[in-house]
């Protein structure tokens, strides 16, 4: 009997799995776009590590492993009107938000025409007022109160705009995490807090950061829902994000989404990722790779073929080649450019 029931259950799950994207209202085109948006930051990251080794880049912070979390959440937004408050492990988010590969390369090369800030910030910290991609910094969790404040302003102005903010598990230990979530809960602000829990704050494992299993369990303490989601399953991330965005847009307040994921690379190019993790653990997580997982799904549903996959990769490769070439040749900032934008330029 037990065996029968299991079989029936798995059959049921299989049926459900088959229709997951339709249930979420995602067309073939959108699915392929999502796939591309996950693959692109992965390929860019791989290229950045190569360029680091070639001496072309001084610094890399990468987000390999985080792509489903980034794309699944960003895809639930109204791009260009909703505010995105990211942190340094969100290459997939900024690309999904509309930054071009050239924009990204100009930033990581620190070139004069870097639209994020003319080569001022470390690679990985992007910004565009046009895309409503909010300026961010290296300190941890400081952006959470900003997200609450942005959402507060939208609420005061009566605009149906939501704000999404991203942070790692490390950020949840900071006072700004508590202060922002508490305030957002009090005022039912239209904000979505996305914790990209990759289990380590640089080297410190979750067990030494908190005494609980799920960051999301803290949300009820702030008076709003917390959701745990498989951060390597882009469709499940998207489902959670869509619900959270709808809640926020309809005045029902914040949601804390905890996406369980993993970073394959070290924290940055100045870190050694296997001082505190085993290679075996990293390999285990690679078996649950978000891009591979989504590729399998798309293949199972006849949406992606090997040929199409190759075509997409070739297209992205070419985009990256062009962008690298462009950024490499682009002019560096003039040294004295360091003096501008301290205050608003006086009106003439």
């Amino acid at each position: 009997m037990a065996h029968m029931r299991n079989k029936a259950e798995s059959a049921g799950r299989a049926t459900k799995v088959k229709t997951k994207h339709k249930e979420l209202g995602l067309t073939r085109e959108k699915l392929l776009d999502m796939y591309e948006k996950m693959l692109l930051p992965r390929m860019i990251s791989e290229r950045m590590w190569r360029m680091l080794r070639q001496g072309k880049l001084l610094f890399v912070v990468s987000s390999e492993g985080h792509e489903a979390t980034g794309v699944g959440t960003a895809y639930a937004l109204n791009m260009g009107s909703d505010y995105i408050v990211h942190y340094y492990r969100d290459l997939s988010v900024v690309l999904a938000a509309g930054m071009t590969v050239k924009d990204v390369m100009l930033q990581v090369f620190g070139k004069a025409d870097d639209p994020s800030g003319g080569g001022r910030e470390l690679p990985g910290l992007f910004c565009s007022s046009k895309l409503r991609l909010v300026s961010t910094s290296s300190p941890i969790a400081v952006q959470l109160p900003h997200a609450a404040g942005i959402a507060l302003a939208s609420k005061i102005k009566g605009e149906k705009i939501v704000t999404i903010t991203y942070f790692g598990d490390g950020a949840t230990s900071k006072g700004d995490f508590h202060e922002a979530l508490n305030f957002a809960g009090i005022h039912k602000l239209p904000v979505i807090f996305v914790c990209e829990n990759n289990k380590y704050a640089i080297s410190v494992p979750q067990s030494k950061q908190m005494a609980i299993e799920n960051v999301a369990d803290r949300a009820p303490g702030y008076g709003f829902p917390g959701v745990v989601v498989d951060g390597n399953d882009v469709l499940e991330v998207y489902r959670a994000a869509k619900e959270a965005v709808e809640r926020a847009r309809n005045g029902l307040g914040p949601t804390l989404i905890e996406a369980k994921t993993y970073r394959y690379a070290p924290h940055t190019s100045n870190d050694d990722g296997v001082r505190y993790r085993t290679q075996e653990e990293i390999e285990e997580w690679k078996k649950k790779d978000p891009i591979e997982k989504f590729k399998q799904y798309l293949k199972e549903h006849g949406i992606l073929s090997e040929a199409l996959e190759k075509e997409i990769r070739a297209k992205l490769e070419q985009q990256i080649d062009e962008a690298v070439d462009f950024a490499d040749k682009a002019p560096l900032p003039k040294p004295e450019d360091a003096l501008t934008h301290v205050y608003a330029e006086p009106r003439r």
């Binding site: 900003h146 942005i150 959402a151």
Partner: peptide
Amino acid sequence: SLIVGAAIGAAMNGL
């Protein structure tokens, strides 16, 4: 920190 942080966010969103 929240008082100033939320003020910063609200300022970036036009207030």
